[in-house]
């Protein structure tokens, strides 16, 4: 096993996932298997191949600097669990 439960717990923390001990064990095995598959790709000789930043062989999609109507605060907040006046409200982030 290359991946440990500690690695999975760290990644889960970054992704804000709360995992039970059973899930942690289960996911550790699964992540290890996934990375094993990626290892297989590493066996390919990629010398002299430019790293790919995008799968589509295109560049330079632009828009002009022209204002387009916004959707407005009411629509923006329509799906928000909590709002105060025209603001989104979230749990307090500083004391």
């Amino acid at each position: 096993m290359k991946i440990t439960e500690k690695d999975v717990a760290y990644v889960a923390g970054l992704a804000r996932l709360a995992l039970s001990p059973d899930e942690l064990t289960d996911l550790t095995g699964k992540m290890d298997a996934m990375l094993g598959y990626v290892d297989k790709l590493n066996q390919l000789n990629t010398d002299g191949i430019v790293p790919t930043a995008h799968a589509v062989p295109m560049a330079n999609a632009f828009r002009d600097d022209q204002v387009v109507a916004s959707i407005g605060a009411a629509a923006a907040l329509a799906n928000a669990p909590l709002g105060v006046e025209d603001y989104f409200q979230v749990p307090r982030v500083i004391e």
């Binding site: 828009r63 916004s70 025209d86």
Partner: peptide, 27 residues
Amino acid sequence: TTATKIFCGCSTAFGQSPNSQTCPVCL
């Protein structure tokens, strides 16, 4: 000082009412 945001056409004007210059991209 562009008129619009970097990835959508919402205005960048300063001091507008909250969330009035938003769209699916910047939300």
